[in-house]
Simulated assay, not measured.
Amino acid sequence: MKQKEFNIPFSGLKQGKHHFNYQIDNTFFDSFGYDEFNAADVNLDVVLYKSSTMLELDLEASGTVNVNCDITSEPYEQPIDGELHLVVKFGEEFNDEDDEILILPHGEHQLNIAQYVYEMLVLAVPQKRIHPGIEDGTLQSEVLDRLNELRPKEKRTDKEENDPRWDELKKLLTDK
């Protein structure tokens, strides 16, 4: 089983609230064969509510992952935050088809949350990774310089001039 330190042995716990804390670095993502991050520094807090019939887990993560910018390939620190609420019930057999409800077989005494943590953190990273230095103009990069050179130079100066092809369509809007 992946990441034994993410096993939560719930059978010995009293009913009520229990706290767990994890520090996640890149070895965690490496164990899943995920190599999109250059580095990771994420703090994960887990609160487990144990009742006689079920478990509820609240996972909260925050930290940074070092990723390469999609535009310039420059590495940068991307802040990430993630939250997940998971309900664990007991049944005849293991079932994790529902994203928010996990069914463990009766008699099970521990729960591994590594897969849930992995998915939550990977999904917390924006689809498009853009170095903050691009937005504020502080990033000096050959790639950016080259992109600026290739940017179209001409700009439409007369915004009032209409394209005659659109005029006929605009008439349709007023001919009601």
Rank of each mutant, 00 (worst) to 15 (best):
K2G: 02
Y76V: 14
T27M: 06
I8D: 08
T64F: 12
L59Y: 01
E74G: 05
K153P: 02
G33N: 00
V47S: 13
P164E: 14
S11G: 00
S62D: 13
D175K: 15
T157L: 15
D35R: 15
K128D: 10
E142K: 07
R146L: 00
K170L: 12
L123H: 03
T72M: 00
P126A: 09
Q115H: 10
K89Y: 02
E92S: 08
P164S: 09
T64V: 12
L44F: 11
L13T: 11
Y22P: 04
E119W: 10
D41C: 10
L44K: 12
R129G: 07
N95V: 00
D41K: 15
D96W: 03
E36S: 15
R156Q: 13
H18C: 10
P132D: 02
K128T: 09
I8T: 09
L111T: 05
D35T: 15
Q15H: 08
P9L: 11
F94C: 00
I101Y: 06
D41I: 07
I71Y: 01
P126H: 09
P132G: 01
Y22F: 15
T138M: 00
E149H: 04
T138L: 03
K17W: 05
E83G: 12
L172H: 12
R129Q: 14
F29Y: 04
Q115Y: 13
P105H: 04
S31Q: 11
Y116S: 11
N38W: 08
G63V: 08
I24C: 05
K171T: 13
L121S: 11
G63A: 05
R165T: 15
P75Y: 04
F94D: 01
N66M: 10
T138P: 02
V143Q: 02
N43T: 10
Q15W: 02
M54N: 08
R165H: 13
E149R: 05
E36P: 03
S11R: 13
G82H: 06
R151N: 06
Q23L: 09
E97C: 00
D35M: 10
V125N: 07
T27W: 00
L86Y: 04
F28T: 02
K50E: 02
Q23M: 05
Q110H: 08
V125K: 07
L144R: 03
D30Q: 02
L144G: 01
T174R: 15
P9V: 09
E108T: 14
W166E: 11
G33A: 02
E108M: 04
L86K: 11
E100V: 03
Q110R: 06
N66V: 15
Y116C: 04
D163H: 14
D41P: 08
L144W: 01
N66T: 15
Y22V: 08
D175G: 12
G82Y: 01
D30K: 03
K153G: 03
L111I: 05
V117H: 03
N43F: 12
Q23Y: 07
K171M: 10
K50A: 07
L102E: 02
I103G: 03
